[in-house]
Design a protein around this nucleic acid. Sequence first.
DNA 1: ATAGGGTTAG
Length: 536
Amino acid sequence: MMSSTSLFTTPPPPHTTTNRLPPPNKLAVIISNSKSIGQLLKIHAALYRQNLHNDPLLNFHLLRAYSFLNRLNYSITLFNQTHNKNIFLYTAIIHCHAQHNYYEQALLYYSHMLTDNIEPNAFSFSSVLKSCPLKPGRALHSQTIKFDLDKDLYVRTSLVDVYARGGDVSSAKKLFETMPQRSLVSLTTMMTCYAKHGELVAARVLFDEMEQKDVVCWNVMIDGYVQQGLPNEALVLFRRMLAEKVRPNEVTLVAVLSACGQIGALETGRWVHSYIENTGIKINVQVATSLIDMYSKCGSLEDSRLVFDRVNDKDVIAWNSMIVGYAMHGFSKDALRLFNEMCRVGLKPTDVTFIGILNACAHAGLVDEGWGFFNSMREEYAIVPKVEHYGCMVDILSRAGKLEEAYELVTNMEIEPDLVVWGSLLGACRLHGNAQLGEKIAEYLVSQKLANSGTYILLSNIFAAKGDWNAVARVRTLMKENGVQKEPGCSSIEVNNKVHEFLAGDLRHPNSKEIYMMLEEINGWLKVQNYIPGRT
DNA sequence: ATAGGGTTAG
């Protein structure tokens, strides 16, 4: 960066000013508390004028402050211009790079430090291990043993984290269990490891054993349930957290709102929203996005939009949530209008944006526009379409009855089509009564062992729609032979803060008699309105 | 004199 180089290489001006600066220890505090780059540069300039620009302590703080204000280039320049770098400066530059996820640079500075004959300490290791992937992490692990630092609480915690992030759960566990001492953070690290790998029970055991719990470990446990699709457990834990007077933060709320969205718990979601407003927790862009997503998943787009309009610094994810929300509910025009607006304010769409607008095109039957957006992904935005985007295109073409074109697209994809793509095409075959193509696809899926119960059901429905009952029977036999069982359909609804779950054919609900009577009544209304099941 | 570890949105 030109500006950074010239800034540091310009010789200090002659001492014309006699402005007194605070003593170095005060200056260090001022530097590390700098809130803007302009302020920091002013201080740095003053240091030049006072000939204090070679002070190791102040340069250490300057280096960290520049990185903190996202000016890593200034940190690097400062580092390079310092002679006789000490371990503090090395550790600081390693830490800055690790913080910005430049783990390769961090490792490079680590090895420079060794060739510079500076022996790493525990601080160096905990810095370089942050954001380090598994392979170099293993090498660093042996280095920690070599320097006899592998039992240090901080170093060991970082090592557990490295193995955890790298997916080597058993190594993480071994290192954790042989730790000379545990801490709240090391326990949370291990809990995170278990939660991320679906071992919720193991995570919960640690959680329940913890003597003191802070907001972070509550968050890990709650979000663990959310990520594993156990929103009810997450909400139960959230209520316990409130009962135990632990104050939730933004991270907690993001997880809890996601749980509400998963079960469609609108009332609980609204309660969380008012809790946020009443307790004065800051609605940052992440929380706002979670609110938008929650309201949209719970079917209240009006509330989504109210939140959306009140967010000041909307990022692309916030826009995506609103666009996807409109698209999901069939408000195609609103989705596309919002997309144009987003581009106008200068935000670059992401792959998720395109899932939204392609979905909007599918709902509105916009085939040409769909192709246009699909092609623009690559051509204008350099986004490689994922299997989901192909799925949307298949949906667009299928709904328009262009089954052969859709089939053509799927067979020519440069990535493997998944069952969702095929399923969407199979569904279209049923809808448009194309048994021939449907059979071809199903045969292929069965032969490739890709078929699930849905594949068989769709195929069977295709034949049933044609009245080919022999073929239906053949499919049923095939299902039995391959041991395929139909998984019952499932849905849930929240009434008076209680979530009720329903399985197809389930009679266990205390009010199941009334529920089925109501269903009969609705079916009657539909019949009167000439609704034909299976036609969407 | 100076520093380090764990949790966020589709």
